[in-house]
Design a protein around this nucleic acid. Structure first.
Length: 574
DNA sequence: GCCGTTTTCGGCCCGACTGTTTTCAGTCG
């Protein structure tokens, strides 16, 4: 599905270049919408094109379909190349500077020859950009700040870190008074896997006081913008924090609005507009009379456009509005639906606690079962277990069982070797209750090799769950090159499950892929990959990904009762 | 450039803040 992202990126670029040319905002938006459709498409765009289905996709009409076809056939987009020729190669990079948009960047290129961030910085320092596109002293300073920020890296924060900051800042605002109600909104409320900024929404009778509190917090290093009802600041560890203060009667509308996503909200407003209504963060208003018809709660806002309340995790314009209209929103899986954890380590390999403590902690969480899935022998760096050691561990587990109510499952996180064979022989694997398999080495294999490797592992009759299927680390490592569609096809054919690994740096599978896998009928395991006991709590993150993937309990492997799980994993065993 | 239970033409989501401009453009979300 990598072509989906390639073409989406090209469409986004097209939109930016068109914007620099002052083209119609609607044409620009059309390319952005088309790009968004492609990057969230669960299916390979080439397959859609092959069956002539491109124009059936939302936002893809005759022209965009022709461009997709052109790219698939030739690997090029003539129109884009013509647009690129008008501007410097680094134009897109310039747009990554906060506060610098396509119009200004184009003017800088045409009037001062700005073709790189280095040159932009030099001209800012020498003040030579003053006079272009209404730029004066202040804008010059802001661009320099933007450049400094860009150099520092615009990393999105991991979900738990951002949430911690949001909670901390929220508490500080409350402590200083004036806050009536406070909610976390934005991508944090939608539980996106990474978060670029924290959106806080407050009702208050003293908006100025709350704004002032935020801008003067010790952990705030820069005030980006500050008005009577809105402020935007930079937190000391890089995230920006946006605060909005609204009246209580607008709280629902504001919460809906600031939760997003942008695309979800645009759709909602379009529907409202067809009904003669106007939705803003202040409420829902009758277009003719100007009268407010809703706003205090989110439910009210959705009701005005004939929809039930939609869970925040689904608000990505990925079909949730249609599903809501037709009364087929999923009954999303929740933490309480999970009956056990299917991926956990102990000090037998690279975990930091004993077998007993893991089991006791899982039992204390109220689980019906927990697996012990330490690494296998080839992963020496993680203290992988050899065959004898594994058998000793299984015996230790069987010995411990009578002391616990929770069922302890003997397992392994078995390495998938470079050729796709598993690290333990079949006669060893069949002694276990559940077998996880994962790639931990030779990440640089070609797409063909990696795909064949994983597909072969899935064919092993004793293997059950493919753990962290893409190998990505959100903060540091790209996924390995693999044809996931082929992997899913093999998993479905062999009756295997795939994992949502809830480790905050992995979240692997991610939401889009998990949704695709589940649509193919593949059971999804939501697992913590616990190495420290506190990480059992990461199950919340895994469930968040699952909810964003539209999963219901029936699609989740570890929402099944113990008997059903064992019958699935070892059908031959009594 | 897309789209249609108002429409195949004429619409297309809405508002805050900043810096520059005396009425608004650009950027952001």
């Amino acid at each position: 599905m990598s072509r989906n992202f390639e073409i989406a990126r090209l469409f986004y670029e097209m939109a930016s270049l068109l914007e620099a040319r002052n083209e119609s905002v609607f044409r620009i938006r059309a390319y952005q919408r088309g790009a968004q459709t492609l990057e969230t498409l669960g299916e390979d765009v080439a397959a859609v094109a092959a069956r002539g289905g491109l124009t059936a996709l939302p936002g893809i009409g005759r022209d965009l379909a022709a461009r997709v076809d052109e790219y698939l056939a030739t690997g090029r987009l003539a129109r884009l190349e013509a647009l690129r020729a008008e501007l410097p190669p680094a134009f897109l990079t310039l747009l990554e500077i906060r506060g610098l948009g396509p119009r200004t960047a184009r003017a800088l290129w045409e009037q001062r020859g700005v073709d790189s961030i280095e040159r932009l910085e030099a001209l800012c320092r020498s003040k030579e950009i003053i006079g272009v596109a209404g730029i004066r002293e202040k804008t010059c300073e802001n661009i320099l700040k933007g450049i400094a920020l860009w150099k520092a890296g615009r990393a999105r924060g991991l979900l738990p870190a951002a949430r911690a900051i949001a909670v901390q800042v929220g508490e500080a605002l409350r402590a200083h008074g004036g806050v009536e109600r406070l909610e976390i909104a934005g991508s944090l409320r939608r539980m996106r896997e990474t978060v670029k900024d924290v959106d806080l929404l407050v009702t208050s009778t003293e908006p100025a006081r709350v704004i002032r509190t935020l801008t003067s917090l010790p952990s705030v290093v820069e005030v980006i913008a500050q008005g009577p009802t809105k402020a935007s600041v930079r937190h000391q560890d890089g995230l920006s924090i946006d605060l909005r203060v609204v009246e209580p009667e607008s709280f629902g509308a504001a919460l809906q609005y600031f939760t997003g996503s942008k695309d979800h909200n645009v759709r909602l407003r379009e529907i409202a507009s067809r009904r003669g209504l106007r939705i803003s963060e202040y409420g829902v208003f009758d277009e003719r009379t100007g009268a407010r018809v809703a706003g205090a709660t989110e439910e009210e806002v959705y009701a005005t456009v004939g929809l039930p309340w939609i869970p925040p995790e689904l608000r990505e314009n990925q079909g949730e509005i249609e599903a809501a209209r037709e009364g087929r929103l999923p009954a999303l899986v929740a933490v309480g639906d999970l009956r056990g954890d299917l991926h956990a380590h102990t000090e037998w390999s690279d975990g930091h606690h004993s077998l007993e403590r893991l089991i006791a902690a899982a039992e204390a969480r109220g689980y019906e079962y927990v697996i012990v899935s330490d690494h296998s022998r080839s992963l020496t760096i993680a203290g992988g277990l050899g065959v004898d050691e594994l058998r000793t561990q299984v015996a230790a587990i069987r010995d411990l069982q009578p002391r616990f109510r929770i069922r302890i499952l003997a397992g392994t996180e078995c390495d998938i070797l470079a050729d796709g064979t598993l690290d333990f022989p079949d006669e060893v694997l069949q002694e276990l209750d559940v077998v996880l398999a994962a790639v931990h080495s030779r990440f640089k294999q070609s797409r063909e090799e990696m795909t064949a490797r994983i597909v072969r592992a899935l064919a092993n009759p004793w293997m059950n769950v493919l753990a962290h299927p893409t190998g990505r680390l959100l903060s540091s490592r790209a996924p390995y090159d693999v044809d996931l569609e082929a992997v899913f096809e093999a998993a479905a054919r062999h009756g295997k499950a795939v994992e949502i690994n809830a480790s905050p740096d992995r979240l692997d599978l991610g939401d889009t892929h998990a949704r695709r896998a589940a649509a193919l009928g593949i059971p999804i395991a939501i697992s913590t990959d616990t190495h420290y006991l506190r990480e059992l709590e990461h199950v919340e993150l895994g469930v968040a990904v699952a909810r964003r993937a539209w999963l219901e309990p029936a699609q989740v492997l570890n929402a099944r009762p113990l008997d059903a799980l064992l019958a699935w994993a070892r059908p031959g065993r009594a």
